[in-house]
């Protein structure tokens, strides 16, 4: 099939970007979206032009590196699918695809479709961890965890940090990402010692990085390639109220 691609091109973080149009013939329906971009880049390189930069690593939907808006939809039209797992059979000959990077004050564009997501790392560093004694690994199952709790914790832990929730949110909020960490560790005994400090400090950092505030559109969870459930955000809100009013943190 032949596609009309309209892709955001931006030289570096200081340059003004713009949408550029490319006609790409010979796209196979078996290609992934990233493979389609690879073909485009081969053509661009052949013509002596600058290839389109995009993030990618595993190309099997587990690492969270890839991502772009396709016709205004995070990771394209499919549900629970990363851009690398989106396949061109989803589109038909002659389609126009508008491809843009995530847009957020906290995710500055570095080049073309590549954005700087280190703000996520700083939120993570603010409390998305547990303190454990180092040394030899503990016996498996030495800390019993009810199966339901383990499964719920895993639903939150599935977050791959791609940033799609921020991109999908009309407010540019990072609540689903942050809440996934808070809700995940709250479910587990290992997460208890830092429970109050974690939520206060992660929300503080999230605000400082310039993300917006949730007004409950629920677009994030619909766009999330891992389907992280929206109740994570309610849990984070509850944890935040609990830590503020019922703990000694911040006295």
């Amino acid at each position: 099939m032949t596609l009309n691609l309209r892709i955001w091109r931006q030289k570096d973080s200081h340059a003004e970007g713009a949408i550029e149009s490319y006609e790409l013939p010979g796209v196979s329906s078996d290609m992934s979206f990233l493979e389609m971009l690879d073909i485009l880049n081969e053509q661009l390189i052949g013509k002596g032009e600058e290839p389109v930069s995009f993030d990618h690593d595993c190309r099997e939907g587990v690492c969270g590196s890839c991502g772009a808006m396709v016709n205004g939809q995070v990771h394209g039209p499919d549900t629970e699918t990363t851009l690398c797992q989106l396949h061109m059979r989803r589109f038909k000959d002659g389609d126009t695809l508008q491809v843009e990077p995530w847009r957020s004050a906290a995710f500055p564009v570095l080049k073309d479709l590549v954005v700087d997501r280190s703000s996520f790392d700083r939120i993570q560093q603010a409390g998305g961890y547990v303190s454990v004694a180092t040394g030899s690994p503990p016996d498996a199952n030495s800390v019993p965890i009810p199966k339901d709790d383990a499964e719920a914790a895993f639903d939150y832990a599935e977050c791959i940090g791609c940033g799609g929730c921020v991109a999908a949110c009309p407010n540019g909020a990072a609540m689903l990402f942050t809440a996934a960490k808070v809700a995940h560790l709250k479910k587990l005994p290992q997460g208890q010692p830092e429970r109050e400090r974690r939520v206060l400090s992660m929300v503080d950092t999230m605000d400082k990085e310039g993300f917006g505030a949730c007004t409950n559109h629920y677009e994030c969870t619909a766009a999330c390639p891992k389907g992280v459930p929206i109740d994570a955000i309610a849990t984070m809100n509850r944890e935040y109220l609990r830590a503020t009013f019922f703990s000694k943190e911040g006295v």
Binding site: I19, M69, N71, G72, Q73, V74, P77, T79, Q98, E100, R103, A168, H217, Y218, E219, T221, A222, A223
Partner: peptide, 9 residues
């Protein structure tokens, strides 16, 4: 975004 879409929520 120059085009806005949704996943339906």
């Amino acid at each position: 975004y120059s085009v806005t879409g949704t996943h339906g929520e």
